[in-house]
Design a protein around this nucleic acid. Structure first.
Lengths: 211, 211, 211, 211
DNA sequence: CATGAATGAGAATTCATTCAT
DNA sequence: AATGAATGAATTCTCATTCAT
């Protein structure tokens, strides 16, 4: 039986309702830095400023913590996608795509998304439902959004008669990969700035689908 | 003429010079299945048909084993790239790109490469020199090869005046991403067969660069 | 006239003076099911319908709770013994022993006593004063009672001149062991019903001491 | 990944085939002293003079260790019973019972058996198959042996026509309980020496079954 | 009185690494 | 060269106990 401990310092009960988020934030940081397997709960606890046991009050185990962390971030991604969709204005399709692409690119280059992207690539593999969730709610949804826009452009005669699904896939492929590369710029000095990359991608992509 | 050696069975003490490769093969299998952290040296030893201690005769530790495993696979990738380059024939550039793309796509869809790709995405992060090696010897080199071909096509007037480096990057982005997706087809049932995907990629890509 | 209080439901804040008993009852149930070490205070609290901290208002720690629980049950045992003693009537000694034995047997087969017996055997070891208390106030006292009766029977010439202390010990040995066995009847299908067992014990025991 | 450790001292590989028994002996001691739940594997390892991990080379977990320990002791008990049976000589039944009882009593008063007896009473509960094993191979078997002897005595007219099974049960009850009590003599100073107790039990028991 | 969130010492279990044989 | 028994640091998860509210 554990012996009583002096816990008089370190004020307890600071904003208890913030605890889960506090822990998730810490987890985000640590997982992002070391990956799932090498991150110790101790580290997360220390960074969150809580005791190790506290984590278990809110998450049944390490993996659940990871899952929740990913889930909330993915949900943020969906939210952004939806806002982008609803911001749709009646302009030329090309200019809309440019706008959307810029938005999306900025989002992808966010630290949080960079982290989650790497984690997802690395570990989502071991979490089939999360993977499915990601595939359905983020990838498919985003693709549907882009496909809708492309279809519209094709209809209007702005773009050549390309399969919108295919075009959407190419869009994802280009943007996602460049995001990864941009995150590891140190390893590839030939890469231009984020703005340049965006311009290049837009150029290439629009060139491929415009009439 | 040297006789081929049977390394398939866990034959003891036969062909001692094959030991390292035997171990690497086993490591490949196990790492590919469980990732770096969750793979136990015991498993690798068992699969390689050697004792755990034997691994340490050839590799100083688990990570070195992983590094070596990745390194040899990457070198295989380079070799393939070089063969592709040397297979260069005096045909139309488009047809050469089609040929190269098919070759490359087939290689990417190889189990070994699928595995290494996933591992690389997941863990290369922790091995900066490996990452650099990968960036320099595989990515850059492959890109140079493609860029050279594109430049040639531009020169000949087959392609529009696009930056060859950029075009090469797009090429990689599209092929690599599709390879990842194709490996997780279960999560995205809208994806066509490998052949269809290849055709679609070629269509899109050539459409973007052809005059 | 005081109104009875409903403590069956987990009613909050009602009948605060019943709190300790409420907790002890819960402890009884949980300790009986899982033993001392594997019972979590959380479980006891939940079953008692109080918060975990509340337990500490009444008991300084888990072991004290266990002690108190055992103590009260043992005291109940003493009380029963005393009632038996005071119920002493001027009949034949044999018939009195039969009556007492039946009473005692019924008490031993009680769930509460079965539980306490198992717990005592298992853990009393670690609580020397409890063990002493048990030895003095239950075993010795019960033995004295039986010895007195036997002595009386010997005096009257009903029984053969046996050492009353010894006879009392044999009495305890037989009844206690059979109680344990009866509690684990599943493991010994040759055992008869409780009534049969009682009859057999009485037969054997009286046969051993009667003239 | 754990760091390498200096293990140059503390000679490894001392009599490797003795390891399991060495560990079991240590487990015996520690479990006997503290019970299953409160015994730490660390303690067992320390007492066995091996590292904690070594235990896991031979036993999958703590409970398996306990089981094996109990099992081997119970098997020892069976062996003793069998030897007793085979030592059966053609003398008077009473003298044989006296001999057997003495033997059995000595065995029961053994430290190893005292320990196992307490443990069994305390924890066997949580190990149904062990309990069944105990019931079948020790209790039932011993009982059968005794019952056979009693039956023989009844046949010969040495004993009164008592049910041999019942008599065997009473025999067990008396001997086992007295063994427990003798082990806790400190709590009951009225108890005589082991020899006295044996004589008393024999007296009482034979008095109950003799003609 | 009562609560229950927070604590952190512990304990079981794992596994990379060593080294006597 | 090869073995595999042995090691023990490291890590996850548990739960008795405390204390601010």
């Amino acid at each position: 039986m554990p012996r009583p401990v002096d816990t008089s310092s370190a004020g307890r009960r600071r904003a208890p309702e913030a605890r889960p988020q506090q822990i998730l934030d810490a987890a985000f940081h640590e997982f992002g830095e070391r990956g799932l397997a090498s991150t110790r709960l101790d580290d997360i606890a220390r960074r969150a400023g809580v005791a190790k046991g506290t984590i278990y009050l809110y998450f049944p185990n390490k993996e659940a913590l990871f899952e929740e962390m990913v889930r909330t971030t993915l949900i943020e991604a969906i939210t952004v996608a939806e806002q982008a969709q609803s911001a749709y204005e009646n302009d030329s399709i090309e200019s809309f795509i440019r706008e959307l692409a810029a938005w999306w690119w900025k989002f992808l280059r966010t630290e949080r998304v960079t982290t989650i992207h790497r984690l997802a690539l690395a570990e989502l593999h071991h979490f089939p439902e999360l993977m499915q969730f990601f595939a359905d709610e983020v990838i498919a949804r985003g693709r549907r959004l882009v496909a809708g826009i492309i279809a519209c452009g094709v209809e209007r005669g702005e773009f050549r008669p390309i399969d919108p699904q295919l075009a959407a896939r190419m869009y994802s492929a280009i943007w996602l990969t460049h995001s990864t590369w941009a995150a590891g710029r140190q390893f590839d000095p030939t890469l231009g700035s984020d703005e340049q990359l965006l311009a290049e991608m837009l150029d290439f992509y629009l060139g491929a689908i415009k009439r």
